[in-house]
Every structure is written in structure tokens, then in C-alpha cells.
Nucleic acid binder design. Structure first.
Lengths: 168, 168
DNA sequence: GCGAATATGTCAGCCCTGCTGGCGTTTTCG
DNA sequence: CGAAAACGCCAGCAGGGCTGACATATTCGC
């Protein structure tokens, strides 16, 4: 089977491919492969900057997200964070505990509802969040180079449109 | 924000929030938090559709990527794939083997250089790639609703700009 | 006041998918 | 022929998702 295919492949010098393998390759028309791939590459590179920083701190992407959102909305509860990140309690608990133990995030019992643990970034937590956001923001600015304010709004609108309807 | 301030006002009666926790929250000005978060949410939701499909097939995101790129560029070698995905040989080997064993991808010795294994999607491989791409493409179309061709080019340009310089 | 519901913490273990290092095979090429 | 390239595979490790179960403190409806 493979032998036969090799022969076929060799016969036509280059582009020939075993029949079952190519007959309707790329029939997939309506599909927007370009954007799918561009989005994949863009996001991969987008998180590579913070990843590099985190590596030296012993943290990972999960820590990044927690620090980021806690810094963005100080006082948010664990439930808020779970809702934002859409992960499970245990997945969060692990990284949150590490961040608390390392002094990047501090927990305070809710003043109204003492069952809640309101989360606040410490000074170093804010510093970390900022350090991680900075290269990402620079990347965004670079991608926005030479774009009008309207163009930027288009991008924002696109990114919103890519999200699921009910988000917070 | 306001919540933190409320809490601050109340801290006399409570555990009190250490001062380092609130004093200059949100000093982080030049940073484009909006886009950072929008990008995070957008990508998370973007891959949630294929994830759901893959779950029932026993595959994961890694398989998705492999099937996708092999389908996009039939005949690419293992080295090409490694270069595209930017992962290590072993990370790829695992999922690739599963895909080959499951009959989604076929390997053919290179006609010129027989050390190479050229990768081709099988019929079911193409079907899978298409099934995974379809919801993503629909999501993209939805996000493009009401946008002009120029606007779409802006988005494409943005996504390209977000990638690292040396791309393939 | 008491029991249910809520918000959270935690233990134990599983899976996927990155990673490193090392070794072996086939094939190409100087 | 020997080095180098392209690949396959084994073993092991880490991060970060997941489930299920169970413990705690606190709030709240009755």
C-alpha cells in the first residue's frame, strides 16, 4: 500500500499524492482558515512574553490570569474570579494559594458577608501584574501602528464579537 | 475601584486591609487592559467550540492543531509541523501517533528524501479538520457582522501585527 | 434557634500536553 | 565509510485543567 503510494508519488515527480489523500482537498470553501490561523499565531505569541517572565518567577499562566484580574478589580471574591476565568474551584485554589503564600495577593474576609474572601493585590502583586501586562500592551500598540481610532474600534468590536454572548 | 474604597472606609471595624493593598491601585495607565482581556476572552471562547467536539472523540487541542495544519498543507513533513507549531518533537510525536493510529493522518515516505515522512490527512482527517474549523469560522463570520471589507482587512492586519516577526 | 444554603478550603487522583534527555533507525551526503 | 539529518520511541517531569468528596464558617429563611 505504502509502496504503491510511493510509486505514485514519484511518478508525477512532485505534486502527485495518493488518491484517497487528495481528491477533494480544499473543498472546504466557506471556511475562513486565514483568520483561524492568524488568531492562533497571534494569541500564541501574545502570551509568550508573559510566559517568559513567569518562568523565572516559578509561576505559570494560571497565576498570570489570577494576578491580572485581581489587580484589575481589587476586592473581587473567589466566586467572582471563578466566574471570570471559567475554571473550577480546585484549579483556582492551587494557584491562588501559591500567590497568597508568596505575598502577591491578600485575602480579606468580606465586610458584609464574612464567608467571602475578598482578594486584593499586594504591592508586589500589582508590580507583577503590571510587569506582565506591559509587554502585551506594547505588542498591542505595535499591532495598532498606523491605525486610526476607528480602526482600533473595529478591532475591539471584532474581539467582542468573538466572545460568547453572556460574559461579564 | 469604588469597592476597594468602601472596604477601606470600613476597615476600622474589620480585619483592616493592610495599607499596601489599596493606595495606588490602577496607577497603571499606559496599559491597554481592555484589549488584553478582550483578547483573552475571545480566544478562550474561540477554542471552546472545537474543544467540545474533540472531547467526545477523545482528542485534545493538540490533535486539533495537527489535523488542522496537515489538512491545510498536505504533504508537509514532521519538521515543517514542528516549526509551525513551535513545540518539541516528543510533544508532537504523541498526538501524531494517535492520529495516525486512528486513521486521521497518513504518513508517506518523502519521494525525494526518503527520511522524511510527508503527512496527509485521510478522508476522515479532512472531515474532522472541517468539523473543527466550521464553528470557528462561523464565530468569525459572526464577529465580522456588519463590517466592511476594509474593516476585515484591519482585523487581519491587527492579527498579523500581534504575531512575532519571523513567522511562516 | 435551627437547619439549609452559601462561600470557601482541601485532599486525592486523573488527563492532556507541554518539556528534557537519551537512544536507535533509516537515509542522505561529503 | 562515517557524519549528519529526519524521524520514532522510551522514560520521566511539570503545569494546569478536571471530578468527587468532605470540612468549615457564615448567612438566612422559617
Amino acid at each position: 500500500m505504502t509502496k504503491a503510494n510511493e510509486t505514485v508519488a514519484r511518478q508525477a515527480a512532485e505534486k502527485r499524492i495518493p488518491d484517497a489523500l487528495h481528491e477533494d482537498a480544499m473543498v472546504c470553501d466557506g471556511i475562513d482558515f486565514e483568520i483561524i490561523e492568524a488568531f492562533f499565531f497571534a494569541y500564541r505569541d501574545f502570551i509568550s512574553d508573559p510566559d517568559a517572565i513567569l518562568e523565572s518567577s516559578g509561576f505559570g499562566r494560571a497565576h498570570h490570569r489570577v494576578v491580572h484580574f485581581v489587580n484589575r478589580e481589587p476586592g473581587m471574591t473567589v466566586a467572582d474570579l471563578l466566574d471570570t476565568l471559567k475554571i473550577t474551584k480546585q484549579s483556582l485554589a492551587r494557584v491562588l494559594k501559591q500567590l497568597v503564600d508568596s505575598g502577591y495577593i491578600q485575602q480579606v474576609a468580606g465586610p458584609e458577608d464574612r464567608r467571602q474572601r475578598k482578594l486584593y493585590p499586594t504591592r508586589s502583586g500589582r508590580a507583577l501584574a503590571l510587569a506582565l501586562a506591559e509587554p502585551q500592551s506594547r505588542r498591542i500598540k505595535r499591532a495598532f501602528q498606523g491605525m486610526s481610532a476607528d480602526d482600533r474600534r473595529v478591532v475591539t468590536r471584532f474581539l467582542s464579537g468573538m466572545q460568547n454572548a453572556g460574559h461579564d
